[in-house]
């Protein structure tokens, strides 16, 4: 994937030079291993800072919300699905955008890699399917497939679903992945086990809201957690309030979540809150045959009615 960058830069420069866009949104190299920072270029010279590697897990669709400019945006498969959702929900218009599609080979899981090493990680470099980690002065090669973000490991839409430019040849989509193994594991638990599982999952949460703020779907002017009249949920650290935040946030993503994994990646304490949204994503897929953001023309299941919608739950 490292070789994409020349093409990304070439396209971005061209778009800025011929004034087809006013800015291009991409990533630049961060100051720490496994961290890239979302950034923008307004001039062809700014494009020099752009990078592309396996640390571009933040979903750039998040940076489009309500912008007025004409924008070029570097977008992975999941990013394009969220851009489509943004367009459907009128948060940006198709005419404003030039989508530079990136056929993605998966992003690496910085939380997981950090836990594999006792020492502080000094550098992480990549070479195709190999990830080289230097920690405590020692170099260790890892297989990229072993350290992919959990959502990337089961992703079946690596290629952009729509685009204006393409940064590379399309990649082969992953076949035979068990997309919902993690959800099924929880579904098999009994009620008490389920309760305890989520209780321990959420115990490190500090309510920084990085998950909801990294999510392109969370764009409400005032989030329900911040409402004071009525106060839907307590603002402190009571476990009931923490859980209310997480599960209501998930509900608001029903039929919209693309499982891009930005929430989990953004979490400073490494909570896999995808197990909430993933359950809804699975339900939408099983009950409505719906995957969010696959088309610009189809309305999402929660704002359409069809006579054969499942309704077994109404007694």
């Amino acid at each position: 994937m490292l070789d994409y960058i020349d093409k990304i830069k070439e396209i971005s420069e061209r778009l800025l030079k011929d004034c087809s866009v006013e800015m291009v949104i991409g990533f630049r190299k961060g100051t720490l291993p496994m961290m890239n920072e979302p950034c923008f270029a307004r001039t062809p010279e700014d494009v020099g800072q752009f990078v592309w590697d396996s640390n571009c897990g933040i979903n750039l669709a998040n940076y489009l919300t309500d912008r007025k400019e004409r924008i070029g945006i570097v977008a992975k498969g999941c990013d394009t699905r969220n851009i489509a959702t943004h367009i459907i929900e009128n948060k940006i218009s198709r005419e404003q955008l030039v989508v530079i599609g990136v056929p993605c080979k998966g992003m690496i899981d910085k939380h997981k890699i950090a836990t594999l090493f006792a020492d502080e990680i000094q550098t992480v470099t990549e070479n195709g399917e190999k990830i080289l980690v230097t920690a405590g002065g020692k170099e260790t090669p890892l297989n990229k497939s072993d350290v992919l973000q959990k959502n990337c490991a089961v992703c079946t839409h690596r290629n952009p679903v729509f685009y204006d430019e393409l940064a590379a040849e399309k990649v082969e989509e992953q076949q035979d992945v068990d997309r919902y193994a993690d959800v099924q594991e929880i579904e098999a638990m009994d009620t008490q086990e389920k309760w305890d599982y989520f209780e321990s999952l959420l115990s490190p949460c500090i309510r920084c809201y990085a998950c909801k703020n990294a999510c392109p779907l969370c764009y409400c002017p005032t989030c329900f957690v911040d409402e004071a009249k009525p106060q839907w949920v307590g603002k402190g650290q009571d476990p009931t309030d923490v859980r209310t935040f997480h599960f209501l946030r998930a509900f608001h993503c029903a039929g919209r979540c693309t499982d891009c994994g930005a929430c989990e990646r953004a979490c400073p304490v490494g909570i896999n809150m995808r197990v909430f949204t993933k359950k809804l994503e699975k339900d939408c897929f099983e009950q409505f045959g719906w995957e969010a953001g696959m088309s610009l023309d189809e309305r999402p299941p929660l704002d359409t009615y069809r006579p054969n919608d499942p309704n077994d739950f109404i007694k």
Binding site: E37, F40, I206, C208, Y209, A210, P268
Partner: peptide
Amino acid sequence: DISFACLNCGTCTYT
């Protein structure tokens, strides 16, 4: 340029 990437989460202030 500095603020562009910011998610406006509370991680920096809380930690």
